[in-house]
Amino acid sequence: MMKGLKIVVLAKQVPDTRNVGKDAMKADGTVNRAALDAIFNPEDLNALEQALTLKDKIPGTTVTILTMGPARAAEIIREGLYRGADNGYLLTDRAFAGSDTLATSYALSKAIEKIGPFDLILAGRQAIDGDTAQVGPQVAEKLNLPQITYAEEILDINGNTIIVKRRLERGVETVRGKMPLVITVTGSARECRPRHAKQTMKYKHAKTVSEIQEASEDYLQLYNSRPYLNIPELNVNDIQADVTQLGLNGSPTKVKNIENVVLQAKESKLIQNDEKEIEALMIELIKNHTIG
């Protein structure tokens, strides 16, 4: 019988970039996330599913959610708990604001060192707000761990050996690695299971320390009697991070300039939707050798 695994899933709350309003950008070129709907990054849900599948298979496995973000990012920890995770940590501090992928990876790696060790570190391949796919490999490098990116399925685990199927541009690759390691999961992986009714009831009132402080006095008793409802918060001091490697100062990349996208007007010819005009267009394209 295999012993249970300790798994952490790195999850990010992302703005729903399909709906960006005018007020979404701040003067310094960084994103004003508060102005947008926030969702669980889709590929992080694919990663969570891989973790929960292992939990189903290997008794004693625990799944921890780690997210870095503002206070409201606690929402995705709750979402993870509803779907079957065991606990979660919110990494939150003003010092993290404006971090690029390198500074973010540094903060996450320090947090993992603090709450770990873990056998497996799972994350989505990339987040929809940046589409960079950099944080997973950079966390692996900071922790001096091997990585398997673009994973589609964890096929097998035996002892500390893990077999993973990767989805490449034009094919698949099966690799064998040794835990501990970092795996990033791609969007073609199995979709995440929905919320579990019992878990949702159990964790409905799960809150971070800051959220509990805002809750009414009547509830305080609840959090004392049910410790699992407390979502721990971690700040810079908790993870013993070097502040010079965080936030804007710790980010080697800077945003020099942001341009709102303006469509360039081009002379566009309107073709009426009738057989005659469409035929004239096709004849024109045949004559100038575009088609034919």
Binding site: L263, S268, Q272, E275, I286
Partner: peptide, 26 residues
């Protein structure tokens, strides 16, 4: 706004007309 030609209408309505016109003229 970046198109050279714009045809307003549904795909299922317009494409058959394009195919027909193309076949007729080649």
């Amino acid at each position: 706004s970046i198109a050279d030609y714009t045809i307003i209408g549904s795909v299922t309505d317009i494409i058959p007309k394009m195919i027909k016109a193309y076949k007729k003229n080649t």
